[in-house]
Amino acid sequence: MILDGHCHVASTDFVPRAFIEDVVDSMRRRLAAVGRAPAREALVDSYLAQHQDHDADRLVAEMDAAGVARAVLLVPDFGMVMAGRLDLAAMARRHHEIRQRHPGRFWVYLGADPRRGERGAREFADLADRYAVDGLKLYPPCGYSPSDPALYPYYEECRARRMPVFVHIGPTAHSLSFPFAHPLLIDRAARDFPDLVFVLGHGGVSHVDVTAYLALHRRNVYLDTGGFAGTPDGDWPARLNRLFRLGLNHKIIFGTDWPLNQLSGGMRRLLDRVVHGPEVFAGVPHGDRALLLGENLLRVLPPAPNRSGREAGAGAAS
């Protein structure tokens, strides 16, 4: 059974246009360097057209084709820096409806921003309970540290529900703030909340020298592989293989960062190369594959059996 710990619904209802335009500008600069830049508006339209899967039907079809049983949907809160179509409450409701439309296929980590203050923490807790949310998603490049004390009320709510905290690290849209995306910024919070699980999103791809020792030496810090195939040189199987031979396979959660790679073969092509290709698991103990492709994720999810239909967790931070 394969579980994907890092997906997004490819919908302009959840991804701000400004974020998509940032992505387009980066791609267009790369294409311009080789003399192939399309008109900006045409490229924006193309990317917007790739974000019309509002009910996650296409994502489920991709998961079925790739053999992915279930996935985590991440719902970042960009609202303080980028205008979006929906507020957080509406996004939470829509993701709940997506889960009802596709029973048993998704967990949901809902976003937050510490600048919304204690009222924001209460709203997050209310939405988490109303919609049986499974985790907190943070996007520090929006302008805050994941160890900002203003986040601690949110962390208390997560601790009370044994929900993991998923923290984006590494590069992102060019208009956002990269210094807040450094993985070491999690250290204070990880020490202050030793019984709360922190998952470093993209930690298997960016700053791996730092994320690896954090995962090895902080019992409550995990990392994920989201975006592993997003590098332009196509050498990602070898890089994943190096990651899986660092001795921390009990702390790595597999994730694709869908809808990344939707044009370049989709989830099926990625999973074919991961599971059946010769490189990714070369020299990796066979038992570690189950940890990487699902068991580690199950261990960090909240334990209540009826929240999202999963069995009790095993105490990932203990």
Partner: peptide
């Protein structure tokens, strides 16, 4: 650009 038609991503299932 060459066909003057938008690529319909909603029905395109990528594959190797």
């Amino acid at each position: 650009e060459r066909t003057g038609k938008p690529f319909d991503f909603s029905t395109y299932m990528p594959g190797p």
